[in-house]
Design a protein around this nucleic acid. Sequence first.
DNA 1: CGAGGGTTTGAAGTGCATCAAATAGTGTGG
DNA 2: CCACACTATTTGATGCACTTCAAACCCTCG
Lengths: 242, 242
Amino acid sequence: MQLYQPDDVRSILTKAPFFKACDEAQLDRLSAGAVLCHYPKGKILFLHEQKAEYAYVLNSGWVKLFRETLDGDQAVVDVLPAGHLFGDSAIFNDAVYPCGAEIVERAELVQLSLAAIRTEIQTDNHFALRMMDTMARIRRQQDREIEHRSLQTAPQRIGCFLLRLIEQKQEKGAVTLHLPYDKTLVASRLGMQPETFSRALARLKQETGLTIKGATIEISSLDGLARYSCGACSSEFPCKEK
Amino acid sequence: MQLYQPDDVRSILTKAPFFKACDEAQLDRLSAGAVLCHYPKGKILFLHEQKAEYAYVLNSGWVKLFRETLDGDQAVVDVLPAGHLFGDSAIFNDAVYPCGAEIVERAELVQLSLAAIRTEIQTDNHFALRMMDTMARIRRQQDREIEHRSLQTAPQRIGCFLLRLIEQKQEKGAVTLHLPYDKTLVASRLGMQPETFSRALARLKQETGLTIKGATIEISSLDGLARYSCGACSSEFPCKEK
DNA sequence: CGAGGGTTTGAAGTGCATCAAATAGTGTGG
DNA sequence: CCACACTATTTGATGCACTTCAAACCCTCG
């Protein structure tokens, strides 16, 4: 296993957007009981409806949030990039996790006690406000997700996914990007089968002139891709939300 | 238009779960700028991405939350019953509404200024905590919604919808219920076409022995319905969440 | 009674899933 | 560095679920 020049808990927290605005004393309190962990692909952090004790901050790698039916099917709710806080919404309601979480790319993360976070929320109103802001943002993303899964075709969902992956490279021209994780996982992230993903990507290539080489995708025209994908979405490209 | 013995703003707020725990002074502050409104079916309260000034408490009737694509398709995010607060999440982020809202059954509602709510959140930590609790609950519902739209078949989604409509009548035996609004709207609430809804309901009848008379549905066996619907869901019947 | 919206039914088409198999890619031990 | 094993990805063939378009039916309300 690769050895990291290990960031300590403090420095990881300060890098995460959610904790950026925390003052020194607050970071001290939060990181007091925190643990730095490394996990390989496949590690399950927690399961849906399990009693919640910890939230996590992802410093590197990728984490999948999912829900499993009694019949054994799985719905992927989201796949989180580095910098994210997750598991935190279990602070409320019944203190059980709303989804399961699994490492999908070798990850370094900080385990925080929910109790510590709860204390900060109750004590520090600014902290609570930041938390609410984050929750509202997630809610927007979920609204969008519901819309997408209802109205977009498979090729459009892929196009939209690629556009959001690019984020703000505002060049109108060509862009090259790498899929950050397995195509199979991208497929389930978008609510489709791997076979459908493969075919839909081929379709997208034919419709908008992408070039595909393994996990590398070159987009010749952002505008063209947006024109193809974003018609079936309620926000125009470039998507502000997220 | 029918005349109500008009409840005043105060009494409506105290009835809404969200404001139950507010003290007198707080209710005074919140209801100061509030307006009681009556609207007929079809009235649009606000649109997606519109600048937000008000939140609403629904005292009677039904409200549809929706998003519209550039192509003109519509995704119904939720249909809210009396007692709900909505439009509130626009307090955060860019202060624009995350969905449009339309009255779908003649409604009585209280219009609250977002600024007033914002002030309470910033001032009263308990209020902020209640708000976060509500936001977390909504998030759970949305996670479930994403799961359902990805994994359940149309008849299963209907079955699940009926079960949640019944809520807590814990009799194992027969239950009679009325659809609270148009079948067409139920269909779009569940992310399907009216025709599909009609056929899927017929299918459900055949599979689980329902009786259907217009908008009245008699369920002979809750267990049977749950067995049919809940296999493709991650929470067992009876659904705790919501 | 007649108009108009909601609802059902029918026929045909489309998109995605499923099952099966071929191919490409990756990491392993020799 | 090669051969093997194993996984990821693609491709093909087929089926099913849902949509679409069209028309009939039903119900309510003026």
